[in-house]
Nucleic acid binder design. Structure first.
Lengths: 220, 220
DNA sequence: TATATACGAAACGGAAGAGTTCCGGATATT
DNA sequence: AATATCCGGAACTCTTCCGTTTCGTATATA
């Protein structure tokens, strides 16, 4: 039984009692919450869950350890909240391309910012990997924040390509939409090679497009 | 600087001095080495690198902690040796199928033993994931013992298919040969779903074969 | 102004684990 | 027989880290 298992039973409630009398005294600086969570994600990406210490997070956020424990009851919940909050932060700001072709859409997703953000998330995933088996809650949070958004984009592109008649409706959308994410994870975590444009294009032209029966644009 | 970084400098030398006078006294029981290493792999798969303790390994192997430290100078080297020895143990016993068709070869690789063994190795990989970034030696060992053998098999099947004219020589062998392994890792570590026959067949018929321009055998 | 809470910083207590040492006993050489 | 190394087991030291508490200070209400 991992500490995470115990910690997550309280669903959405925060550490302190909200409904009691929170009238007197200095008010909690709510702007520190996202700062602390972001520092937690940084440390997580650099050292992994086990290597991460609350002192590291506090030092990076220039916060006292007591400030952190006043807001999250344990390291496990801090990490879970940090991962969960990644989701909200990442959903809004990107409008998806709609170029009229599947390849156009896929290639248009290759942006420096997108790559950078993706590698960061993969590092976080690696740091949490050993916990995922024993903590389904954390695994679900990782899925919701990191995996599903990417898969959903690919799935949308494939569905649109079917709708416009560009590809056959028989293609295995569910499997194909996970190819690029899986291969990117493999490349970062095991091969330790960068996710550069050439790699992503070779995925598109060497796997995805051939698999749906499209020719890459003039091989030679 | 992780403990692993320091530990691996001595290349192949074992802990004790071999060239001094190892004449007198009771001889070391060399048959315990593989037993201990195998227990280390089991604990590793169950708890991950950080969660694994030398006492767990010793208890499972019914060995004293001193016996382990007499043979490996640190936890880090024990784990590295355990992963490295997986390679030798796994290479010999499988003769590869040669059915005459790419799909035949790929499907023939789906055997209960192979699946079971694969999931065990994926669990070990998950337990080591957070270390791979900071320890290239360990990452290389994981690649040599777990990843490369599988990739090599797929690459061989694809090359044979090209040689017999079954598929075009233009297909991206290097990328395609890593698809199944990456997707299996993703499925085990993140989706936490079993690697069953249906999943592997959907990989073959939904991704690999279409990507090389072959039709799966009668969709409906 | 008096009170109560938040803040950063640092000290503290307790638990867990890496690595060492010692024990009684077994097995080898000389 | 004497010596030296192995064995499993357990006690031991030392470090690290979680989580708590304390302290001086800042900021809120009454």
């Amino acid at each position: 039984m991992t500490p995470l298992d115990l910690a997550i039973t309280g669903s959405d409630e925060r550490a302190d009692a909200i409904d009691s009398a929170p009238k007197l005294g200095r008010k909690r600086d709510l702007t520190r919450d996202p700062e602390i969570l972001n520092c937690a994600l940084e440390v997580l990406a650099e050292t992994g869950y086990e290597g991460m210490t609350i002192d590291m997070v506090a030092a990076r956020a220039k916060a006292g350890k007591a400030t952190i424990y006043r807001r999250w009851p344990s390291k496990a919940e801090l990490v879970l909240d940090a991962v969960a909050c990644m989701k909200k932060a990442g959903t809004a700001p990107e409008r998806l391309p709609d170029t009229g072709t599947l390849r156009g859409d896929l290639v248009a997703m290759i942006k420096p910012h997108s790559i950078e953000d993706g590698e960061r998330k993969l590092q976080i995933m690696a740091g949490l990997a050993s916990m995922l088996t024993s903590s389904p809650e954390l695994a679900d949070a990782v899925n919701a924040a990191i995996i599903n958004p990417r898969v959903a984009v690919n799935k949308l592109f494939l569905r649109r390509a079917i709708d416009r008649g560009e590809i056959s409706p028989d293609v295995d959308i569910d499997t194909l939409s996970m190819v690029s994410g899986s291969m990117a994870a493999h490349r970062t975590l095991l091969e330790r090679k960068p996710i550069d444009r050439a790699f992503l294009v070779s995925l598109i032209d060497g796997v995805i497009l051939p698999a749906v029966g499209l020719k890459p644009p003039t091989k030679a």
